[in-house]
Amino acid sequence: MIRDILVNLAQGVERDAAAEYAASLAVEFGAHLTGLSVAYEIDVPPFYMGALPTDFIDAQVLENQSSAEKAAARLEDIAKSAGVPHQIRTLSASLGVAANSFAHMARLFDLTVVAQPDPDKPGPEEVLAETVLLESGRGVLIVPYIQEKPFSAERAVVAWDGGRASARALAEALPLLHRTKVVEVFRVVSDGADAADEEGQDVARHLARHNLDAQIRRLPVKSGDSISAAILNEVSDQGADLVVMGGYSHSRLREMVLGGVTRDILSSMTVPVLMAH
Rank of each mutant, 00 (worst) to 15 (best):
H178T: 12
G83W: 00
I57V: 15
S101F: 14
L111R: 09
L134R: 14
M275H: 05
M269R: 10
T270V: 13
M245T: 11
G12S: 09
M49C: 01
M269L: 14
N8Y: 14
K70L: 13
S94D: 06
K121D: 11
A173T: 04
L91P: 06
A153C: 15
V13K: 06
R217N: 05
I216V: 15
S236L: 09
F56H: 06
P119D: 02
N233A: 15
K149V: 06
Q215R: 11
G224E: 08
L212Y: 02
P85V: 05
G239D: 02
S37Q: 04
G83H: 00
V127D: 07
N211S: 13
A159W: 00
L95T: 10
A39L: 02
K70T: 11
A167Y: 00
L174G: 05
S81Q: 14
E172Q: 13
R217E: 12
L176S: 08
G30N: 02
G246W: 00
G247D: 03
E126Q: 10
V221Q: 11
S81A: 15
D194W: 00
S223I: 11
T90V: 08
G137D: 07
L274R: 09
A193Q: 08
A103T: 07
L6Y: 04
Q147C: 09
T54E: 15
E135A: 15
T90K: 15
H277F: 01
S226C: 04
